[in-house]
Design a protein around this nucleic acid. Structure first.
Length: 271
DNA sequence: AACACGGGGAC
DNA sequence: GTCCCAGTGTT
């Protein structure tokens, strides 16, 4: 859950999830639908599917006991080097380093690493550093302490170098170069997109939904019929494309607006 | 190496 | 608005 998601956001989901799925076997026996239900709203839904698959793998290959060995943990779906080494260092104090958002930024500054962080050469330097600095004992606590310094003091903007115990060891902080190390990421280009969602309800208050196709956003998830109308010019063009999509893509015969039928709010808006 | 994946927090 | 978040898997 914590992959690319802030701790404070995760906490309520985490409690509800563990309440329902307290161990790998319970999770493995659940349906995907129920797993998704407790994940809904968190985003990155692939993680839910992978966690479910990981639970099944733990039952199938490890008798329902979470594996103790690095290669076995790394082989779980959705578990990469960071997650595997975090788990084993926290849970068993294995002597393993970690690089994630917080320690990546902190270690880049301690190394005065000016290369872009996505470069494989940068990643290697960060992981080598992470593995080199961990103590033989108390490694898990050390890793979490580094993450805490990264998140509470060594922040992306305006880090609190004055209160940082590592300032004497930090060339970036000493030179006040925290605004250029690590190197700022390339600006993300946003492509404008306008979509229409079509809400169809029958007399039993059931709503029409569909499963998103692969290659499409939210592939495999359920959604209202939804189409890209970015290329449409004005309400008439949009409604026309929506009508066609309803018929051709979704096989639904839309009720044609007639002058006699009272115009709904949705129709007026062209939604 | 670059990209997709999601929703929200912080400023 | 903009940047970023306890990354991973795929292309």
């Amino acid at each position: 859950m914590l992959q690319q998601t802030q701790v404070a956001t995760v906490i309520p989901y985490y409690h509800r999830f563990l309440d329902r799925f307290p161990d790998p076997r319970t999770l493995a026996n659940a349906t995907e639908d129920e797993v998704f239900k407790l994940w809904a709203g968190l985003g990155y839904y692939r993680r839910a599917r992978q966690l479910h698959a990981a639970a099944k793998q733990i039952v199938a290959l490890h008798s329902g006991q979470f594996p103790r060995n690095l290669d076995a943990v790394l082989a779980l779906p959705g578990v990469g080097r960071y997650t595997a080494q975090a788990i084993l260092s926290f849970a068993h104090d294995d002597k393993l380093g970690i690089v994630e958002a917080n320690t990546q930024r902190l270690y880049a500054r301690l190394l005065y690493l000016t290369d872009p962080l996505p470069w494989s050469t940068s990643q290697k330097q960060l992981w080598d550093f992470a593995e080199r600095i961990v103590p033989r004992k108390g490694c898990g606590e050390f890793n979490q302490a580094m993450m805490e310094i990264g998140s509470q003091l060594c922040t992306p903007r305006n880090p609190n170098c004055a209160e940082c115990p590592l300032l004497p060891l930090c060339p970036t902080g000493e030179r006040q170069h925290t605004d250029r190390v690590p190197a700022p990421k390339d600006k993300k280009i946003i492509t404008p997109l306008t979509e229409a969602a079509i809400l169809v309800r029958n007399s039993s208050a059931q709503w029409l939904v569909r499963r998103c196709k692969s290659g499409e956003r939210w592939a495999g998830l359920w959604d209202f019929p939804r189409i890209d109308v970015s290329d449409c010019d004005g309400e008439l063009g949009r409604n026309d494309k929506i009508q066609r999509a309803m018929r051709d893509e979704f096989g639904v015969k839309g009720e044609r607006p007639t002058p006699s039928s009272p115009p709904s709010a949705a129709r007026r808006r062209g939604s």
